[in-house]
Nucleic acid binder design. Structure first.
Length: 1062
RNA sequence: GCGGGAGUGCCAGAGUGGUCAAAUGGGUCACGUUAAGGCCGUGAUGGCUUAGUGCCUGCGAAGGUUCAAAUCCUUUCUCCCGCACCA
């Protein structure tokens, strides 16, 4: 027996690949590029876990596959080495995060190499490397200049003992993770945000262009959460207040308003009389928000009357305004119109505070619950004449409870039917309960006639039901809001319209009154990137009080009454304003500001203030000069004004304006959004490095480091303080794939040519947990960088594959506390990396969750043992030409395996490889075809394949060989069929032998086969004898000299020979 | 509550209209090999039946569409995952 020394083999090839650098790639290849990317790991001290082993193996298999197919494959790796866990682990271990991280990375690399993953190691990046995060800072500055990065107040978790902000996962049961007795407070602090919502629509549309799993796309769409609705103005104390609703069709049902308790302008609504009440309420809420998340989830809808009334723009009704804890301050406008009849939350609120409920949408069907006992038996069947019927439940006293959905047209008839057929068991007569106002649901009681129209009726209903002995849980008494679409009622001129139609009409009516408009809302929020932590990318800005003073003193104030222009400025859509040099036109936007001065833009509508710095002011005598300078001459523009260039182009269409320019020339401002007092570190000063010497345990280690914090302002030179927040680590992973294309560039973020050549990612592989976070961010970054002109693609990852999770053998997530963790390294030591790789893809389809199974590992190992042994003793056929069966099989194998790998169906591909190997073992094949098998195997088990490749005399490395081609013509289905017949015959014979033995207690000795003349070549005596392990003699049926004492030759059918055993 | 996904033989897990009693691996059993065990090899593994056959039951449950359903539709139950008061 030959010893499969996987240990020696794997070390040998690992070294060989590394010294020959066979996986390093460049841009100067004639091959087509292909970019395969694994999500880079966070290097934890624990080393690789099974999930890593799995997902990276999937990536490696795909990269190897594409490489063999002849692509120039970029398959890089790096480390997402900044982050909270490293900091925490380091604190725990008493080391510096840097040291901890470096150690972890070294450990990772060793293990990754042992797994045989074919990375181009020359392109490795680490996000903790200042040469990497330098470019994070650079992008940040670009975002800041364009208004994509901004600051605003946001609630954070604050531990007073740590004097630090905590991440959500550091809050345990409402307390600090390190101070279990300290309640975490919610503080509102100034935080940095990225304006990802600017790209909401693009992010949504881009999903149509990518080849991702449908569920991943759905998840993202849901996350972005686009909804159409209306913005409606309610007048409160003669001031307009906008609200957003998706149900304008229910506007006639508004009976109160609720403003978020966190609304910044809440107090404006509170009357003096109610002030105390409201303040009391706010205090109460605050204490609740400090409890655990679970309590918040089960929070009751609570509120307090503000004392103000709002006027409904449709019917001019006055409704009270409440402050409530269930309204989100940062979604929509922080205030809702409450329609208790048609919204469950509003309904509960109304019930609690006894606010009237007004029903304005009728269901299209009425639902009745009919109790079997209440109707004569023969009438029950009749129920279905009135609509759909189904059984809800069965009760031993009351019989079945039927749900009857009655079409509204039929309702009258149905009620008559009920009335005339109810059992009359008492003087009160038969009974039925018609519906509540909401669900039009009814229960038919045996003895009483019941119609419920309001909340009070319910009490009677329950009492009666209980009196009858119906268990309380079977009394469907809880009134609920009717939230479905239906037919409008109680809605003045809009009655009898269908909800969706009514929506349109009502919005139009509001638009006509200028009190509302159709709008779009997104659930997506801006991305909070501030982390009050050490081990992250420092945010490259400085706070300078002097500069702040300077800006405020030297700025020209401009007032905006036009919301849209203001929003455009705010969103950074417009960075240049031009205007003709016309003295009549005063201060249209920027006025007579000059370079180095500042503009303070005040939104008179909502009081918001923005600051801009004038970067450049130029005067052009002719419009043509301006175009030339801006390089706009040969551009074509859309007429929609979305950007600066559109705006400039737009002026061409205004003849009058053009005329004025021709007379007077044109002035152009280049402006930059600034936040007073915030000074950018200049690009040449990057990176802002993390200081090495820091103290942990006393708040943010950066804040306590005086050398880091204190700095002279880069702009004015006076003493200033650095920003001590660091960036969320998702920032690093949002563009790392671009850096791989040019990882060592110190001049630029990356070389355009290199990026254009390699990107976008052709195949991205990662876990399902990243769909809503990382994969949104990476797409957002791509879109921003495209706007900068740094990349050319819309979507960073064309194809995405989500792998499943490898669970422990007990089906639970692998975790130390459960003791079901299997370390990849242990398995490699015991069985080799090839075995582990093979086993990982054999468990199940890679996109479903799988359970670790030691048996599968053993099975895989057995297989590789067999393969190794077989190739050690193999005798090759000279050529396959003599046997078309081999040709047929190998071509079919190549064809199917290629498709399977392309679709990540590795479990199926492996089965096919194994089946083919069984065939190979049974029947020697020629060298060329054996080579093909090795190439196919090499994507899964590269080490053993290299060894076998060398043995068989293959050229170079199997890792760089050619993926075999297949020829459809050589796949011979007839041969396959014949083989099936052969197998079936063997099975038949064995079956007969078994039965004989069971019956007679002795074995048959000799087997005679009677085959049809044209099938003789299928049945080779030698092969048959070997498989059956008995002497087999084959006769043709019409052979006159055949030995056939049983007359079995008569039984021969096509594909199924006669059999005789003696 | 909303959204997504899944339920297949002893187990894991393929299969998404006929070629399906259902791939493959594991387990179990039998036989071979062996002094024996292991390894290895061969076969069996829903029920009944039979010298290689035939029939029945069957892919969570109940209905339905179809000449034909594990596969399509409806209802329902169970489990897993994600999001959580999104107006």
């Amino acid at each position: 027996m030959v010893d499969y020394n996987f240990n020696k083999i794997e070390k040998k090839w690992q070294k060989s690949w590394e010294t020959k650098k066979i996986f390093e790639v460049g841009e100067k290849s004639k091959k087509k590029k292909y970019y395969v990317l694994d999500m880079f790991p966070y290097p934890s001290g624990a080393g690789l876990h099974m999930g890593h082993a799995f997902v990276f193996s999937l990536g490696d298999i795909f990269a190897r596959f594409k490489r063999l197919q002849g692509y120039n494959v970029l398959y890089p790796i790096g480390y997402d080495s900044l982050g909270l866990p490293a900091e925490n682990a380091a604190i725990k271990a008493g080391t510096h995060p840097k040291e901890y991280t470096e150690k972890s990375i070294a450990n990772f690399m060793k293990q990754q190499k042992a797994m045989g993953w074919s990375y181009d190691w020359s392109r490795m990046v680490k996000t903790s490397d200042s040469e990497f995060y330098k470019w994070d800072q650079w992008i940040f500055l670009q975002m800041l200049k364009r208004g994509i990065a901004y600051r605003k107040k946001a609630p954070v978790n604050w531990c007073s003992k740590c004097e630090s902000v905590l991440a959500n996962e550091q809050v345990i049961n409402g307390c600090c993770w390190r101070h279990e007795d300290t309640n975490v407070e919610i503080k509102h602090l100034e935080q940095w945000f990225f304006k990802i919502t600017n790209y909401a629509e693009e992010l949504l549309n881009g999903l149509d262009k990518v080849d991702w799993p449908e569920n991943a796309k759905k998840l993202q769409r849901n996350w972005i959460g686009k909804s159409f609705g209306a913005e409606i103005e309610f007048s409160i104390n003669n001031k307009p207040w906008k609200i957003f609703t998706t149900r304008p069709d229910t506007i006639f049902g508004v009976t109160f308003m609720v403003v978020s308790a966190q609304h910044p302008k809440l107090m404006e609504l509170v009357t003096d009389k109610q002030k105390k009440e409201v303040e009391k309420f706010l205090k109460k809420i605050k204490s609740v928000s400090m409890k655990s998340m679970k309590d918040v989830e089960n929070l009751d809808k609570e509120g307090v009357f503000t004392g103000s009334y709002a006027v409904n723009p449709m019917n001019n009704e006055k409704v009270p305004v409440y402050a409530g804890n269930f309204v989100l301050a940062d979604y929509g406008s922080g205030m809702v119109m409450a329609v208790p009849a048609h919204d469950q939350r509003d309904f509960e609120f109304a019930k609690k505070y006894k606010i009237p409920v007004k029903w304005v949408v009728k269901s299209k069907v009425a639902e009745y619950t009919v109790i079997e006992k209440s109707l004569p038996k023969d009438k029950i069947a009749k129920l279905k004449d009135y609509g759909g019927i189904s059984i809800i439940k069965e009760d031993k006293d009351w019989g079945k409870f039927y749900k009857v959905s009655v079409n509204l047209n039929n309702e009258g008839k149905f009620i008559k039917f009920l009335e005339s057929n109810l059992l009359k068991t008492s003087d009160e007569g038969g009974a039925w309960y018609a519906d509540s106002f909401t669900t039009t649901r009814a229960v038919v009681f045996p003895n009483k006639h019941f119609i419920l129209n309001n909340v009070n009726d319910i009490q009677d209903y329950i009492k009666y039901g209980l009196k009858l002995g119906i268990p309380r849980n079977q009394l469907e008494v809880e009134l609920q809001a009717f939230i479905d679409y239906g037919i409008l009622t109680n809605s003045q001129g809009f009655n009898d319209l269908e909800s969706s139609e009514a929506k349109e009409h009502i919005v139009k009516a509001l638009e006509f009154k200028k009190l509302g408009k159709k709008t779009i809302q997104y659930k997506l929020r801006d991305w909070l990137i501030s982390r009050q932590r050490y081990w992250g990318t420092p945010i490259p800005v400085v706070y300078c009080d002097k500069c702040k003073e300077n800006v405020e003193k030297n700025s020209t104030e401009l007032s905006f009454y036009d919301q849209e222009s203001f929003e455009n400025l705010k969103n950074g859509l417009k960075t240049v304003e031009t205007r003709a040099l016309n003295p009549e036109e005063k201060n249209r936007f920027f006025g007579n500001t000059i370079k180095g001065k500042y503009i303070k833009c005040v939104n008179k509508v909502n009081g918001e203030i923005l600051f801009f710095e004038v970067v450049n002011v130029k005067i052009f005598k002719k419009l043509a000069d301006f175009y030339k300078e801006k390089d706009l001459l040969n551009k074509t523009f859309s007429k929609e004004i979305n950007s600066l260039s559109d705006l400039e182009d737009c002026y061409k269409f205004i003849e009058d304006y053009l005329d004025r320019i021709n007379k007077n020339g044109l002035i152009s401002w280049e402006i930059k959004r600034i936040i007073p007092g915030i000074v950018l570190i200049s690009e040449s000063q990057l990176p802002v490095k993390l200081p090495d010497k820091v103290k942990f345990g006393e708040g943010n280690p950066l804040t306590t480091n005086k050398e880091f914090v204190n700095i002279s302002c880069p702009k004015c030179g006076s003493s200033a303080k650095r920003e001590t927040d660091t960036m969320d680590t998702f920032v690093n992973s949002s563009w790392y794939y671009l850096r791989y294309t040019d990882p060592k560039n110190s001049r630029k973020i990356f070389d355009e040519k290199k990026v254009f050549y390699w990107t976008p990612i052709d195949q991205y592989i990662g876990g399902p947990e990243h769909i809503t976070m990382h994969l949104i961010y990476i797409r957002f970054y791509a879109k921003f960088l495209k706007d900068l002109g740094l990349v050319k693609f819309d979507e960073p990852a064309l194809r995405y594959f989500t792998q499943g999770i490898v669970h422990g053998s007990d089906g639970d997530r692998m975790s130390k506390s459960k003791g079901n963790v299997v370390e990849p390294l242990d398995t490699i030591e015991k069985f080799g990396a090839d075995t582990l790789r093979l086993a990982l893809v054999s468990f199940a389809s890679p996109d479903s969750n799988t359970n670790w199974d030691e048996k599968t590992v053993l099975g895989s190992h057995k297989f590789l043992n067999k393969v190794f042994e077989h190739f050690s003793n193999i005798k090759y056929l000279k050529s396959s030409k003599a046997d078309p069966r081999i040709e047929s099989k190998i071509n079919k194998l190549v064809k199917e395996v290629t498709v399977d790998i392309e679709n990540f169906k590795h479990n199926l591909a492996v089965i096919k490889l194994r089946t083919f190997f069984d065939f190979m073992q049974d029947k020697n094949i020629d060298k060329e075809n054996a080579k093909k098998f090795i190439v196919l195997l090499s994507v899964y088990c590269p080490f053993i394949s290299e060894e076998l490749w060398e043995k068989i005399g293959g050229k170079g490395f199997v890792s760089l060989a050619d993926w075999p081609k297949f020829d459809d013509k050589k796949i011979d289905l007839k041969l396959e069929k014949q083989e099936e017949s052969f197998e079936k015959t063997i099975s038949d014979v064995l079956n007969i032998l078994r039965i004989i033995k069971e019956k007679n207690g002795k074995d048959g000795d000799k087997v005679y086969l009677y085959v049809l003349p044209n099938e003789l070549d299928i049945y080779n005596e030698e092969n048959l004898s070997r498989r059956i392990n008995k002497k087999v003699k084959v006769f043709v049926v019409n052979d006159k000299n055949k030995y056939d004492p049983g007359g079995k030759s008569n039984k021969a059918k096509p594909g199924r020979p006669g059999v005789f055993v003696e």
